[in-house]
Design a protein around this nucleic acid. Structure first.
Lengths: 242, 242
DNA sequence: TCAAAAGTGTTGGGGATACACCCATGT
DNA sequence: ACATGGGTGTATCCCCAACACTTTTGA
């Protein structure tokens, strides 16, 4: 599968003259704070079928008190970046991600009142875990899921970050098998195709989709079938190795 | 000093209680320092033809004093990330990059004696600028160019970083037109092909390469020809728009 | 028996590769 | 003239989109 690539927009910024003598030694970047945020995606049932959604948290502090924002927190001096992302993810959803990858580091001087750089990760969650948690109603407070096509205005530059993560997800779905991370262990080809359709936002030909994935070594057929209203569909699982 | 702690992406790390009443508020990550480094690529003539090379700087301080390292410096509290990358690049080569993009942020707890995260960029430099500077012998001190196939042991985790940047360059050359940034404004198709060959490390069919790029809208033929030992070759330039 | 989803077969276009071949120039 | 790189033509293969078609189930 192939789809259009995205080009990151990076602007050339003119060299800023350094005021020597302001700080004695190099390495004294006292005023810089380091945050880690995560854009979390999962599928959730909606009237129009499964929709790609992400959780946002309502801010309880200034600045942007009361606004929606991406889950995140300050980097602890004794934890790795991946660990910080996992931690903030767990604090938000109490769930293990099936996929977690660093996205980009945002650090414009004016993106927050005090100089803050945000190392942003993105993650995929299995839809059945999320649904189970919702029905168990032990979901964390101040967290709400939003359709990626209806994200409200967010605090800081988080709208830009969420858009960037969505681009990356859509791009990467085209050439890797991360879609697995949004589904339970076993699934039908139609369910997998619907994941691709929800992520990409367009319909795919069922027969070509079948051939494409059956031809690859990524899927392993099982002996089980999902029975429903019509002809039963074979269940598949992802090939763990290669 | 702090002991190294390795955490996988899935590991849930409990929030470590913060010692000291220096600050009770979140957001005081006092012990974390932020560096910006850049992996710079350019083509340089070698006996076997043009080779892809990168500049390294010799460290004059502990740790790793005397070892080769990637160019970089501390992030200034008043400059954007891109600006910091441009600045460290200018300090190393005194040249403007034709291409500059953020690569990844490395932040393992044990990657340096004191907790340091490095926001790494990668850049491409026009070969004619680099050659001109070399002959003008106003090159910066303590800087030396190395073939990407013969990178010496580097300080910190810089070998891993350089390998990562090289992967990204080779991958991106396949689907984008960044190769332009390694050449002067005008060039022949053979010169452009040799750039691709130097980057990818394999030979390409001249006729297919020609058709590929003439068919795209990326190249604009000029009326000039490069005369040499044989039939003159038409000069092209990259299409500025789209 | 019919609707609908599961699953198969067939065709054709476009891009990539391999390679035969002609063209223009300096020596 | 001839060697060498510049440049053109063309056949083949493979991937994949399009779509007609058959199979299997629940109702």
């Amino acid at each position: 599968m192939r789809l259009a690539r995205r080009a990151s927009a990076d602007e050339q910024v003119a060299r800023r003259p350094r005021l020597l003598g302001v700080s004695g030694k190099m390495g004294e970047n006292d005023a810089i704070r380091v945050a880690v945020s995560t854009v979390i995606f999962s599928l959730r049932s909606a009237p129009e079928g499964d929709r790609l959604m992400l959780p946002l948290v309502r801010r309880t502090r200034e600045p942007y008190r009361g606004a929606w924002a991406l889950p995140g927190g300050w980097l602890d001096a004794a934890e790795n970046l991946d660990a910080a992302a996992s931690r903030t993810l767990a604090e938000t959803t109490a769930l293990d991600p099936g996929y977690l990858e660093q996205l980009y580091t945002f650090g414009d001087v004016d993106r927050a009142p005090s100089r803050t750089i945000s190392i942003v990760y993105w993650a995929l969650l299995r839809s059945d875990y999320v649904d189970a948690q919702r029905s168990a109603s032990d979901a964390p407070e101040n967290v709400e899921w939003f359709d990626v096509d209806a994200i409200p205005p967010l605090a800081f530059d988080h709208n830009r970050i969420a858009d960037y993560a969505l681009d990356r997800l859509r791009n990467k779905v085209g050439y890797s098998r991360i879609a697995a991370s949004l589904l339970p262990d076993e699934f039908t080809l139609t369910e997998l195709r619907e994941v691709y359709e929800a992520v990409l936002g367009r319909r795919l030909d069922p027969s070509n989709f079948r051939r494409l994935l059956e031809g690859s070594d990524e899927l392993v057929p099982t002996e089980s079938f999902r029975t429903g209203k019509h002809r039963p569909a074979r269940l598949y699982r992802y090939n763990a190795d290669a």
